[in-house]
Simulated scan of single mutants.
Amino acid sequence: MEIIIADYSGFCGGVRRSVDLANKAIEENEISYSVGPLIHNPQLVSKLEGEGLKVFSKEEAEGIKNSTVLIRAHGESAKFKDKLIENGNELLDATCPVLMNIYKKIVEKEKEGYKVVIVGDKTHPEIIAMESFLNDGIIISDETEAKNIKGNGKLYVVSQTTNRLDYFYDIANKLKDNNDSVVIENTICKATENRQQAAKSLAKEVDCMIVAGGFNSSNTNKLYQVAGMYCKNVFRIETVKDLPLQKLSKFKKVGIIAGASTPDEIIEEVVSSMDEFTKEEFMNSLEDSLKK
């Protein structure tokens, strides 16, 4: 079996920065807190908790005082962060820099008289935080919702950073039908675009694709969608335990791509497990042949 790891697999710059800040908090403070899971990878979050990082919900975090609080990569509202500071906390803000830039853009556009439309998942922490910077923003997630937005003078349309490019433009372009002036800005993270392109390219070349990452990871789920468009056999896994080794054994060329929150050790474990299984299968086949 030939195993090929796609380009751009594993941590993106924003995730790596947030993990580095978490490690700093653990090293320098007796007690430090994270508001919600730092990133969408349960294994890494659990590891950080084992090293001393306490993960609190947003509601619980409002009662934290005089401590070090880590703001997760997906961001939080400015009001919430101000409240934490009022309670005497020191903030380590791990909000992805790409998101910080989007906050600035949408605030400026709203001041200029635009109605800001965000294309994304209403329940995702990234979108919840993004919307909090607006006085009257709109979140949409499909073309039907886009068609129902009518009669606005000026619209400024942005995307969740982990969307597929085609998905974003299919929805955003529908807004042009019923509104006078629509400005569409692609705010999908460049790392996301590169990773999705890598998934597309590799999926065309292999017999099977493995997509690794937290099951709660938006960007990993999008990679699974992209891979499925160009390869008939795609498996979505979170850790090596999810590998369907028996099913994989029939493929000669297997591609692997990992989401932006997937640690290198998980990728390495997946490759190692497949290598060992392939060797074992070969030895068993050889023994059977010699017996004959």
Rank of each mutant, 00 (worst) to 15 (best):
L99R: 14
Y169G: 12
I106M: 11
T220F: 05
E269M: 10
H40E: 06
V119H: 09
K111W: 01
P97S: 09
T187N: 06
K83P: 04
E51I: 03
E276M: 10
E62K: 15
E185D: 11
H40R: 07
V254K: 03
E51Q: 13
R16I: 12
A258I: 07
A199F: 01
E112R: 04
M209F: 11
T123M: 12
K200F: 14
I4G: 01
N186P: 10
D177E: 13
G88V: 10
T68I: 06
K190P: 02
D82S: 15
R164A: 14
G259F: 04
I184H: 07
E90G: 03
I188K: 01
I26K: 13
K122Q: 14
H124G: 12
E86A: 09
G259K: 06
A212I: 08
D82F: 10
L248P: 14
L99E: 11
K111F: 01
K252P: 01
K109A: 07
L38S: 06
I171V: 13
K115E: 13
A260E: 13
T144I: 06
M1H: 13
V211P: 04
L248E: 09
V98R: 04
E28A: 01
E30L: 09
Y169N: 10
K83H: 11
G75A: 14
Y169K: 11
F133W: 13
F235W: 12
G88S: 12
G228Q: 08
D207R: 11
D275P: 00
L286I: 07
N135P: 03
N101R: 14
G120L: 02
C231S: 07
E131G: 03
D288I: 08
D121E: 12
K24S: 08
I267N: 10
D82A: 15
E238K: 04
R164F: 07
I3W: 05
V183G: 02
M283P: 01
H40W: 03
S9Q: 15
I171M: 08
G36R: 11
S201H: 12
E238N: 02
V270N: 02
K176M: 01
L245R: 00
K150I: 09
N219K: 05
Q196C: 09
H40S: 07
K147V: 02
L70I: 08
D177W: 02
Y114K: 15
I237Y: 04
S289C: 03
Y169V: 12
R17A: 11
V240D: 04
D170L: 09
K222Q: 07
D242A: 12
I237D: 03
E276V: 13
S57P: 00
E59T: 06
K104D: 06
M209D: 10
N66C: 08
D180K: 11
A260P: 06
K247P: 03
V117E: 11
F215I: 11
I188Q: 10
K54H: 07
L202G: 04
G255R: 15
V271C: 04
S18P: 10
